[in-house]
Simulated assay, not measured.
Amino acid sequence: MKALKKSAALVSLAVLLTTLLAGCQENRADSSAAPIDSSDSNSEGNSTDSGVIKEGTIQKNGNVILKELSFVHKDNTIAISDIVDDEKLESMLGKAEEKKSHTYSKDDGLNMDQFLGRTKKQYKFLGLEIETFNTGEGSNFHVTEIEITDPKYSTIRNIKVGDSVEELKKAYPEGNLMGDGATIEEDNFRYTPVNYVDVMTFHIKDAKIESIRISTLLD
Score class of each variant (00 low, 15 high):
2 K>N: 08
2 K>I: 05
3 A>Y: 06
4 L>M: 08
5 K>N: 11
9 A>V: 12
9 A>C: 05
13 L>A: 14
17 L>M: 08
17 L>K: 09
17 L>W: 08
17 L>S: 11
18 T>E: 06
20 L>G: 01
21 L>N: 13
26 E>Q: 13
27 N>Q: 06
28 R>C: 04
29 A>T: 15
32 S>V: 13
32 S>H: 09
33 A>R: 15
34 A>F: 04
34 A>M: 08
37 D>T: 10
37 D>V: 03
42 N>F: 08
42 N>Q: 15
43 S>R: 15
45 G>A: 09
47 S>A: 13
49 D>Y: 11
49 D>I: 04
51 G>E: 00
51 G>M: 01
55 E>G: 06
61 N>D: 07
63 N>L: 09
63 N>V: 07
64 V>Q: 10
65 I>D: 11
65 I>M: 06
65 I>V: 08
66 L>Q: 09
67 K>I: 10
68 E>N: 13
70 S>L: 02
71 F>I: 02
71 F>S: 00
71 F>V: 01
71 F>M: 06
72 V>W: 06
72 V>N: 10
74 K>P: 11
74 K>C: 01
75 D>Q: 08
75 D>F: 02
76 N>V: 11
78 I>Y: 04
82 D>T: 04
83 I>W: 10
83 I>D: 03
84 V>E: 11
84 V>R: 09
84 V>N: 10
85 D>M: 13
86 D>V: 11
86 D>P: 05
89 L>W: 01
92 M>P: 09
92 M>I: 14
93 L>H: 07
93 L>D: 04
94 G>F: 01
95 K>A: 14
97 E>K: 15
101 S>D: 03
105 S>M: 01
109 G>P: 03
109 G>Y: 00
111 N>K: 12
113 D>Q: 10
114 Q>D: 12
116 L>C: 10
116 L>I: 11
116 L>V: 14
118 R>D: 01
118 R>H: 00
121 K>V: 10
121 K>C: 06
122 Q>V: 15
123 Y>V: 07
123 Y>L: 03
125 F>G: 12
127 G>M: 12
128 L>I: 05
129 E>R: 15
129 E>G: 15
132 T>V: 14
132 T>C: 04
133 F>D: 00
133 F>P: 00
136 G>P: 07
136 G>T: 00
137 E>V: 01
141 F>Q: 01
142 H>M: 08
142 H>K: 14
146 I>T: 05
147 E>G: 08
148 I>P: 03
150 D>L: 00
150 D>W: 00
154 S>P: 09
154 S>H: 09
155 T>E: 10
156 I>W: 09
158 N>R: 07
159 I>C: 07
160 K>L: 03
160 K>A: 14
163 D>M: 11
168 L>S: 03
170 K>D: 05
172 Y>T: 06
173 P>C: 05
173 P>W: 10
173 P>I: 06
178 M>I: 10
179 G>Q: 04
181 G>N: 10
182 A>Q: 07
183 T>P: 02
183 T>F: 02
184 I>R: 06
185 E>K: 12
186 E>L: 09
187 D>C: 07
189 F>C: 06
190 R>F: 04
192 T>P: 09
192 T>V: 09
192 T>K: 14
195 N>C: 13
199 V>R: 14
199 V>H: 09
203 H>L: 15
204 I>L: 12
205 K>M: 15
205 K>R: 12
208 K>M: 03
210 E>Y: 05
212 I>K: 02
213 R>V: 08
214 I>K: 04
216 T>D: 02
219 D>K: 12
